[in-house]
């Protein structure tokens, strides 16, 4: 057999490993951010602002946007309510990770349209059908949130990356399915 499974063996060729993992696993479109040259070793951990507060705020914003869309058009409830609930859950989990007090008001928000915030970002905020934010706005917002969380998941420490990766995957799935 081949000399596999030598624990030390893999370390010797770590640089090779990197170049091989990429084509094998990461079918990345050319020119994406992560792979600017061979800067994979060590440059990513430079001090950067903690992305978690921004991700938590985005989660709350998405939930509010979905609530506003539901308030504007009740027929969107079945499509958007699960997303709204998920984004509130994301915000609560991120708050917890940040050691912030978790806002139980929003975490336990009722699922009726009455839960829609009164301060919606929708201009004019008329509540007749079609005048508030719609599926497209919610889709775009959650897609942007997915992208932000995915970026953060590339560099976060191990104890934080799991949650943020799950949030990224959840948002991406909604963006794909909406």
């Amino acid at each position: 057999m081949d000399p596999l499974h030598r624990p030390g063996g893999t370390r010797l060729t770590r640089r090779c490993v990197l170049t091989r993992v990429l084509p094998a696993l990461a079918a990345l479109p050319a020119g994406t951010t992560a792979l600017g040259g061979c800067s994979l070793l060590g440059q990513d951990n430079a001090r950067q602002p903690d992305p978690l507060p921004g991700l938590a705020d985005a989660a709350r914003d998405d939930a509010a946007l979905a609530a506003a869309a539901i308030a504007a058009d009740a027929s969107l409830r079945s499509r958007l309510e699960p997303l709204r609930a998920a984004r509130l859950a994301h915000a609560a989990a991120l708050d917890q990770l940040l050691g912030r007090p978790v806002n139980t008001d929003t975490a336990a928000a009722p699922t009726t349209a009455a839960a829609a915030p009164t301060t919606t970002p929708a201009p004019g905020s008329r509540s007749s059908r079609g005048s508030g934010p719609g599926v497209r706005e919610v889709h775009d917002a959650v897609a942007a949130s997915a992208s932000a969380a995915a970026d953060a998941a590339l560099t976060l420490p191990p104890d934080k990356v799991g949650l943020v990766a799950s949030i990224a995957a959840c948002c991406s799935a909604y963006a794909a399915l909406l």
Partner: peptide
């Protein structure tokens, strides 16, 4: 980073 990206794509 590259492996995380691949894993995140798979997770998604």
């Amino acid at each position: 980073r590259a492996l995380r990206k691949a894993a995140l794509d798979a997770l998604t």
